[in-house]
């Protein structure tokens, strides 16, 4: 079977998973359906020929699921039944339909699959081995040509971890001084 059919199958599976995640009332089942979406994305990357991304997505999805289950599954979180007003629903449907119609016009002008506009990738494919000495071209791009990107990513991660520490610490600085 060609790649496209597998891709449509996986994407359909992911859409079903995300809808199920919103509709299921039990929070553990809901977290597991999030995992289905993430692992489906990992499979999609694998079919598109991007093993690096697939590996990162797979591993990270497992870590996210463990954190979510460990942090939220045993807590008693109130699940409030969503009351749907008729005018709100109509407005939401109209906005979604207009975005859908506009996106049809927008996506028509996109370059076709596998034919990008940016030509710099050809230079990377041809010259990466000579210029950086790295056999894995993706590593050559993210750690040599585009290393500023990686620096930004590291900064974002550092800030996120700092935020977690700050919010979840036991005693604040002010309280410790007062004692």
């Amino acid at each position: 079977m060609p790649v496209d059919i597998w891709l449509y199958f996986i994407l359909g599976f992911m859409i079903i998973g995300s809808i199920a995640c919103l509709e299921i009332k039990n929070i553990l089942s809901s977290i597991i359906t999030i995992g289905v979406v993430g692992l489906g994305l990992s499979l999609a990357f694998l079919f598109l020929g991007a093993p690096d991304l697939a590996l990162v997505q797979f591993v990270f999805e497992i870590l996210c699921m463990i954190i979510l289950i460990r942090a939220f599954a045993k807590r008693s979180i109130e699940v409030r039944a969503l009351r749907r007003d008729v005018p709100e629903t109509i407005i939401a449907i109209v906005i979604l339909a207009s975005i859908f119609v506009l996106s049809i016009f927008a996506f028509k002008d996109l370059p076709s699959f596998g034919k990008p506009i940016v030509r710099v990738a050809e230079r990377y494919l041809a010259q990466a081995g000579v210029e950086t000495g790295s056999q894995n071209i993706i590593t050559a791009v993210i750690l040599n040509y585009r290393v500023y990107d990686t620096l930004g990513e590291v900064t974002v991660l550092f800030t996120a971890i700092l935020g977690t520490f700050t919010i979840l610490r036991k005693t604040g600085r002010k309280k410790r001084h007062a004692e």
């Binding site: 954190i67 950086t132 750690l143 040599n144 991660l157 550092f158 996120a160 977690t164």
Partner: peptide, 26 residues
């Protein structure tokens, strides 16, 4: 590949320790 393996090891230490601590705190 010059400094690429070195940067990989630094990023590994940073990401590994950081994500474990996030898991621990959460």
């Amino acid at each position: 590949a010059g400094y690429i393996p070195m940067l990989n090891i630094f990023i590994c230490v940073k990401v590994g320790m950081g994500l474990y601590l996030v898991f621990y705190y959460l």
